[in-house]
Structures are given as structure tokens and as C-alpha cells.
Design a protein around this nucleic acid. Structure first.
Lengths: 290, 290
DNA sequence: CTGGGTTTGTCTAATGCTAGTCAGGGTAGG
DNA sequence: CCTACCCTGACTAGCATTAGACAAACCCAG
């Protein structure tokens, strides 16, 4: 049981907006105290969070409200999944994926990828399923439950799927604006590619430059176009130093460039470098704001 | 569910043009809200993106609209399709590509790939431009004119493009029939992926299993479905022995399976193994005949 | 090469809709 | 009483709608 202020804090929706959504779309109807104060419960908050997630993805509030309003109906065409993915399904798909990787069963791996990405919009699946699954895969590899062949095979399959999604997302013709890639020595590029794809889907002009890129090439890449931002992904601790050096060089070469860092070890990389949130959706939103 | 502004951002098509295309070609009919606002869904956006792609490639909007209207992606385009590629242009693109790789200029590499694949249908470009260009890249690397970083970067960019093309080619719903991949130890997978893509575009059901696949996994892959054929790519001389072993195991496990070998070193691999022609187009034709 | 017709992207003007925020006033509790 | 919080209703900047018009680019017969 929460007041509107607490509800705002937990959902990330401004207080005034909470009231507006309730009044306009009747998406929730929190109980009231005798004096008329709103009282939010967990269930209501979940609905609001689901709605906010859709709005973050670019849905208009009106359509997002319509989508989360009618409780459980699958609604609409296939692949149009909306609110949060079902936790049990997600966990099951993750387990099955790791299992398939352990068996080096490419057919199963491909089928599971197909299935997972048909559960909802790319951004949701990437955040809720793909990244946790890749983490689980890494854990299984470290624990010896998946061998090198299995890990490679699964990673490459993911790579192919992401490459396809990246190519299928429209790039703005007005010329690239954001360069995404990894510093020299870094090789875990799946997160970067997922981010690049989400950014493209959001409407940003994105150039993906891939893994293990020398500083010189970074400089050339940001000079090639009227580039507004560069996103450097830092997947491991070893990649911090090369990433920081790359960031410094970019800032020095082009003062007005927005240099951002994403990935697990991106925090406090260098002065003047924007640290992106871990969630892909949130990271794209943060970048878009600049 | 997006407003017209979001749709514009996602497709890269100006708002006014979106309305004009809808009005003039009826290429899409987005739903409307009660008040008359257009509401775009993912499917509609995909159609618009496909149309914009064609227009970017030089198609007139009218013909592009007709092309995307009846469901399928730009397949065997009339007129443009059969044309031979201009030799001078091809050579020029190859030189520019190797040069871009030498400079590790990812932006240029991507642009050249885009340009080359817009010259004609996938099969033609793959045979006439891509494979020779990859060969030239290998030569340049051997000759020291391209370093490891450049070679890697270029290969990965090609990989991404091929992955996208593979994913974009619809797989036959009747279930996979052909398994394509490389034997254990083999890593040069670009030719295999190009072949797999061409086969899919021809209408075959294709499962691509990637590089460096152990024999066990090959066996599992062909058992997973009513598989009719397995194509093993043999890019280098060192890959002959593992490839031959894989082929023997497959034939032993599944007598009625068509086992074929492609790539530079595929000739006379083992008794009962079909040797595919070097040309991708011809190889797909030969396989299709079985 | 020229001239007329067509195509196509963009613009305008009038009008209505959306959605976040703010102002004025009531409530809880130390 | 005072501070912090909450309520409702109104406001406004931005966004969408239509129909029609227009100039640049393109095509093709002469």
C-alpha cells in the first residue's frame, strides 16, 4: 500500500502524470482513503510499470494504455507481445538455451532464439531474456557445463540473429549520428550489437563498427560523418583501459562529441564520458536524450 | 503501436512522405484511433522500411510500392535481375574494399558492401563480386598490405551482411531440409553462409549450423528434422580430412542422406559425396536437382 | 536535344487532439 | 500552526488531421 509519491518513486512516473493517466485512460483505479487520497497496491504498480515500459519504447500513452488495460488477453497479431514477459517462460527458455549450447545442438539453439524473439518487441526480449541468458551461458562455461564448442556455436548463432535484426532496422537516411563499437582488445560484442540495434529501432542513425577496433579507426569513424555521439562498450574489466584511452582520444579530437560508455564495466571510465545504464532500453533512452 | 512521428523516426521516412505514400500507393493502411490519428504497428513499419530500402536503391516509389505490396521482399526483380554486373564497376568496388580494409575504415567497408549488394540480385553479387573480393582480401593479407585488424574488421562486416541476408530470406515453412556448415577446425565460414543464403532464396529449407562443428553435432543436426541433404564446406586443404570424416559419419548414420561438399578444396572428398561447383549459383542449382 | 506530361516530395492553412504540468485549495500529523 | 503532502480542474505547447498546391526531377515521343 503506497501513496502516490511512493508509487511515483517505484514506477518512475511523475506524480502528475500518474494522475493524468488514471483520469484519461482509466488504466488503473487505485483505492481511496476516506478523504480521497489514492492508495496503490503492487498489482496496480505492475500495470503502471508495464505501461511505462511501452511508452519508453515509443508507444503513445493512449495505445500503451489500451494494451495493458485488458488484463490477460493475448490481443492482436503474433509477435506483438507487449507487457513484461512471463518470468517462468523466460527462465525456461534460458535453461533450454544453455542446455542446447551444452549439447552443441545448433538446430535447437536457432529454434530457441526464434522463439524467444517472437515473445515481444526486440528491446524487451533483449533486456529481459537475451542478456540474462548470455550471462547464464557464461556462467555455465565457467563452471564447465558448456564447452568451448558449445559456447562458440551459441554465440555465433546469437550474432547472426542480432546481425539480421540490426540490418532489418531502418537507418535514418539523413546520415549517421552515432558510432557504436568496442575498444581494441575487446571481443564480446553481442551486447554492443544489441544496443546498436535498439538504437536504430529508436530512430537514431547508427554505424556499428564492431569489436577490437584500434583507436585510429575510431577516430576515422567519427570523422567520416557529422557524428554526434560515440558509444564504447566495455564488457570486461580488462577492456577498461583501452576503452578509457579510446574515449580520451575521441574527446580530444572532437570536443563536441558525446562520448558514452556501456556494458558491465563502463562506470566512471574517464572524465567527460557519459555512463549508460545497464538496461539496453534505458541506455538508448539516455543516449537519445543527448 | 506508434504515432506517425515515431513511425517516421523508425523508418527514416519524413512524416509528409509517409502520408503521401499511403494516399498515393495505399502501400499501408495504418489503423486509426477514434479521433483519426494513424497508429502504426511493427508489421506496417517493416513494409515501409522495405519500401524505403528499394527507393534508396534507385527504384521508383511507384514500382517499389507494387513490389512490397504483394507480401514478399524484393526477390528476383524483373529487368534488373538478369543483367550482368559491369566488370569495371566490380573491379573498382573490389579495390576500394581492400583499400578500406587496409585502412580499417569500417564506415567505408559498410558503405561498399551496401553499394555492391544493391548492384543486383544476391546470387549474382555473391558470385561475381563477393567471392572474388574475399579472395583479393586474402591475397592482400598474405602480401602484408592488410593487417590482421583490417582483415578481421572486414570479415566481420561481411559476416553481418550475410547474416542479415540469410535471416531476410524466408525459410520454407515445410520444415528444414538442408543442413549447411563447416567441419571441426574449419573457420572460414563466409562462403558457406553465402551458399546457405542463396539456397534459402531458391526456396530450400536451410539450417545453417556454422563453423567448426564437431561430428557429433553434425549427426544431431541431421537427425533433428527430416533432413534430405547436408552440405559441408571445405575452405582450405587442412579442412579436407575433418570434412571427409564428417561426410563418412553422416553417410553411415543416414544412408539416404545426400551429402555434398562445397568450397575450394571440396573435390573428391570421399566416395558417395557429391562435389558442388565453385559458383554459388551453380552449386545451389546442382543441389536443388537432388 | 527539346518540350509537354507525369511523378514525387514538400509546403500551407485551418482546425482538432494529446499529454505533461501547474495553480489554487484541502488533508495529515508532529 | 506549519510543513509536507494530496486533490481536482484548467492550461498550453506540441502533435495530427485534411485538402490542395507547387516546383524539381524524370520520362518519352518527336
Amino acid at each position: 500500500m503506497f501513496t502516490i509519491k511512493q508509487a511515483s518513486a517505484r514506477t518512475g512516473i511523475p506524480v502528475a502524470t500518474l494522475r493524468a493517466w488514471e483520469r484519461r485512460y482509466a488504466v488503473v483505479s487505485p483505492r481511496r482513503t476516506e478523504s480521497g487520497y489514492r492508495v496503490y497496491d503492487e498489482r496496480t504498480l505492475a500495470t503502471l510499470t508495464a505501461m511505462r515500459r511501452l511508452v519508453d519504447q515509443g508507444w503513445s500513452p493512449a495505445t500503451a494504455a489500451a494494451e495493458v488495460a485488458d488484463g490477460t488477453a493475448p490481443h492482436g497479431q503474433a509477435g506483438q507481445g507487449d507487457r513484461q514477459l512471463d518470468t517462468a517462460t523466460v527462465q525456461q527458455l534460458t535453461d533450454a538455451f544453455v542446455e542446447a549450447a551444452a549439447e552443441v545442438d545448433v538446430v535447437a539453439v536457432e529454434a530457441l532464439l526464434e522463439e524467444a524473439f517472437s515473445l515481444g518487441p526486440f528491446e524487451t526480449v533483449a533486456d529481459t531474456w537475451l542478456m540474462p541468458t548470455l550471462w547464464a551461458l557464461g556462467e555455465a562455461w565457467a563452471g564447465g557445463r558448456v564447452d568451448v564448442a558449445g559456447e562458440h556455436t551459441a554465440s555465433h548463432a546469437v550474432m547472426r540473429h542480432l546481425s539480421h535484426a540490426f540490418g532489418a532496422a531502418a537507418s535514418r537516411s539523413g546520415g549517421p549520428r552515432v558510432v557504436v563499437g568496442l575498444p581494441a582488445g575487446a571481443h564480446h560484442e553481442l551486447g554492443a550489437l544489441a544496443f546498436a540495434t535498439a538504437a536504430r529501432r529508436k530512430g537514431l542513425g547508427v554505424v556499428y563498427v564492431g569489436a577490437d577496433l584500434p583507436v585510429d579507426s575510431w577516430l576515422r569513424a567519427v570523422r567520416a560523418f557529422p557524428t554526434r555521439a560515440a558509444v564504447i562498450t566495455v564488457p570486461t574489466a580488462e577492456d577498461r583501459e583501452p576503452a578509457a584511452e579510446t574515449a580520451r582520444s575521441l574527446l580530444q579530437a572532437k570536443g563536441d562529441l558525446v562520448v558514452a560508455a556501456g556494458g558491465g564495466h563502463a562506470h566512471d571510465l574517464a572524465p567527460g564520458v557519459l555512463s549508460l545504464p545497464h538496461s539496453i532500453t534505458a541506455a538508448v533512452g539516455a543516449l537519445d536524450a543527448r
